[in-house]
Design a protein around this nucleic acid. Structure first.
Lengths: 198, 198, 198, 198
DNA sequence: ACATAACCGAGACGGTACGTCCGGTCTTGAA
DNA sequence: TTCAAGACCGGACGTACCGTCTCGGTTATGT
């Protein structure tokens, strides 16, 4: 079940991209990431499992980073809603909990770890991470802080700092493999960055 | 200049570790990290530059993570003092600035990025990161927050959260290659986690 | 002159064997065998000289024995004719002389010594020696004795013994590095096994 | 039983050769040869099994060839008597049978194969084979032929040829791993070289 | 109807790195 | 002076993966 075992004799459908191939590659990448993690991930193995040629993969995903982003994004729930109840602390607690659960229970956590790792060795991967990933995925989160500032819950001048702190916190836990529920810590973090007292 | 070009015919000094070899290996690893970064780092190349045998390297640093930690730690300034002036906000600003400068201007920034990347693919590397590195290097920082709590500047219940937020923030900036001075951001961050919110 | 110095940027010609690469590898192996002999022979060095990747070599010649056989066989003169003048003694003298000269003056002598040496340490190499080499190369020689038996020059019951004696004699001289012309010895040997005693 | 497991703390007995060490090394070499054969034979492993230092081994047996010769010679039965009943054919049959059995059932067969293989890659080993081994061990065999010639059974001019043929025959069977009893072949060989009819 | 162009799986190519093993040399410290 | 021990450099081992290239075939599109 885990290994893709794609249709063995899928062929070209003419002078345009083959969606079956794309799906098979992403599925293979996802499974490989789950089974072997970043260190055991190779384009060769993805091609083998997907029954695809390596040039086909390189044509559509020139770097591993692109592939990791595609795996992350392909996940339906990846676009789960950032809550907005009018209470920043409560929203942050809910969002953190949902995010960690998503990272734990889907290939996306693995994919994101791999993406960050890849970005440490390649300028192109770092650029992809920042431009193709962070630029879009951080937007809803930023909006959350902006709306809280608009309500006067936090100072406008502290939006960037709070965003960076919050994002960094989640990365830190992800990269150290500590994504287990920790209600106390999550609540405390939300309290620190979700409330204006200064 | 960059490549070590070690003495070509350094020989054994008997049945015990040779400090000259150790120094040559660390120097080579450091330079390689500076020149090529994580992706271009290989034990083969370190051995070539250090004029050392690969088995010698594997004998003393069984994983790349061990080597990265050694490079980070070998830096004299790696143990720079965490300031303690009795004012947490001011201390955090000073420490952040010093840390980023250290990461920018020594091989340690590269080494740490490499260490974190390596930890994403190998359980052993992750364990090394947490046990051989974080366990000791986070202690002074934790003490800083504990003393602030002792003074009543921050609540005791918020120490762990503030530590995680602050460490995560620094990681986030390091891993995204954004370590340029940004006095405004640093001050804002220090304001958020360096002040009592109740 | 000796080292092949192959075209440095020979590339793939698609999903099939590249004859230029094959030629470069065989040439490099041949030269290396001439220069360094069996002890100094390594796949690494062959790859370096041929400008080929090691996997390419292992793909087509999985063991050193295969490579040695290929070098031996590649020699045009390796298929030199076994004389058949109707006189076994005379034929043996001529053949022995030609064989020794061939072994002395081409890389094949070295290749054969290496092949035999390799077969002493590896079952696979021994099998290759017997099945891929002796099985075919001994056939003309066996025919020579059979025809002599058909003529009544030697007893039919002595064919196998004479063949083993003669082959062993040549091996013995090759393996001890004594292939210089020795007309007296060669004639005496031909007299012993080329004449009917029964 | 097979692995030597030498006394763990045998130490120097002063400024002279230690016979216990010599015995342990030879025993280890013998067992290693039996278990792994020529390809798996290494000085490192012999030192480990014998509980000896590598320099100690290199001091007394500078090349592997020396060690192989020592293993061969250490065998009590290595000096088994060449029969001399006054009938060359009968003597050759008896001797061949005894020799093959000795090669099959003692480490000496392995040691000799290893010695010949080693001699194909090293001039020193080839010299050792010829001067330290063949020179002495072929003497009784040569005497056998000489006495037959003295009796008039074979011509004096054919001694060298018959010796080379017979030795080569035995080598050939040893090196191709075909030492099983083959009474018919042995008898036929003895008939060819043990009788004068020319 | 047919040529063209882009895509497809396949897999060989030159390279490089992996982690391990061995070869032969050297030094130590004890006897 | 010898011994066990073991570190040293160098380099080969056989395998995996990288990213590129060529093949031979398929199919949609534009003429």
């Amino acid at each position: 079940m885990a290994a893709a075992k794609a249709a063995p004799h899928r062929t070209s459908i003419g002078a345009r991209r083959n969606p079956q191939t794309e799906a098979a590659v992403l599925q293979a990448a996802r499974n490989l990431l789950i089974e072997k993690g970043y260190a055991g991930f190779s384009i060769d193995e993805v091609a083998r499992r997907a029954g695809a040629g390596k040039p086909t993969i390189y044509r559509w995903w020139p770097t591993k980073a692109d592939l990791f982003i595609a795996v992350y994004t392909a996940d339906k729930d990846a676009a789960f809603v950032v809550p907005d109840t009018g209470n920043l602390r409560r929203d942050l607690v809910a969002y953190t909990s949902a995010l960690w659960s998503f990272w734990r229970n889907s290939p996306s956590g693995r994919a994101f770890r791999a993406l960050i790792a890849e970005a440490q060795g390649s300028e192109a991967a770092l650029a992809a991470l920042k431009e193709k990933f962070l630029a879009t995925r951080l937007a809803p989160l930023r909006r959350l802080f902006e709306q809280a500032a608009a309500r006067g819950d936090i100072p406008a001048a502290g939006i960037a700092a709070r965003l960076a702190l919050y994002v960094g916190f989640n990365w830190y836990r992800l990269l150290t493999g500590e994504l287990d529920e920790d209600a106390g810590l999550i609540a405390a973090v939300a309290a620190v960055i979700g409330t204006d007292k200064g």
